[in-house]
Measured scan of single mutants.
Amino acid sequence: MKATFQVPSITCNHCVDKIEKFVGEIEGVSFIDVSVEKKSVVVEFDAPATQDLIKEALLDAGQEVV
């Protein structure tokens, strides 16, 4: 499964690193693409990962998800 999250609070590479760390810890996540320019995060994943778990990880990383 693939999901795109709009994350307007992404401003720098530190944000990218933190997002990759938090989302990458979720079992089932196979790909993460964070774009500072587009302020988006694209995640490819399989169970047990879910969109809700990914959104929670983004929030835990200090990001706003819309």
Rank of each mutant, 00 (worst) to 15 (best):
F31T: 08
V34Q: 02
I26D: 01
V42N: 06
I26L: 09
I19L: 04
V23Q: 00
V43A: 03
C12D: 13
A47N: 06
P48S: 01
F45W: 13
L53Q: 11
E37L: 10
K55Y: 14
V43K: 03
L58H: 01
K21D: 04
K18C: 06
T50E: 01
A3W: 12
P8S: 10
D60S: 14
L58Y: 00
P8G: 08
V43Y: 03
Q51Y: 15
T11W: 15
Q6C: 15
V16Y: 05
G62F: 13
G28E: 00
D46I: 13
D52L: 11
E25R: 15
K21I: 07
D33Y: 15
D52I: 09
F5L: 01
E64D: 10
F22H: 10
V66H: 08
A47G: 05
L58W: 02
T4F: 15
D60E: 13
K39F: 07
A49V: 03
K55V: 14
G62M: 13
S9N: 09
V34P: 03
D46F: 14
V41W: 04
I54V: 05
K38R: 12
V41Q: 01
F5R: 00
E20G: 07
G28W: 03
E37P: 07
E20Q: 14
E64I: 15
S35F: 06
K2W: 12
D52P: 05
K39W: 06
P48E: 01
C15W: 11
E27H: 08
C12T: 11
S9K: 05
L59E: 09
V65T: 05
A57H: 02
A3H: 08
K55T: 07
F31D: 04
V34T: 04
D46Y: 13
P8Y: 10
F22Q: 06
V42A: 07
D46W: 11
G28S: 02
S30G: 06
H14F: 13
T4K: 08
S9Q: 06
C12F: 10
P8L: 12
G62V: 12
C15M: 12
V29R: 00
A47T: 08
V43D: 01
E27S: 08
G28D: 02
V16M: 06
V65R: 05
V29Y: 03
H14Y: 12
Q51I: 15
I19H: 00
P8I: 10
T4Q: 09
L58A: 00
F22P: 01
F22L: 11
C15F: 08
I54N: 03
Q63S: 05
E27Y: 07
F22S: 07
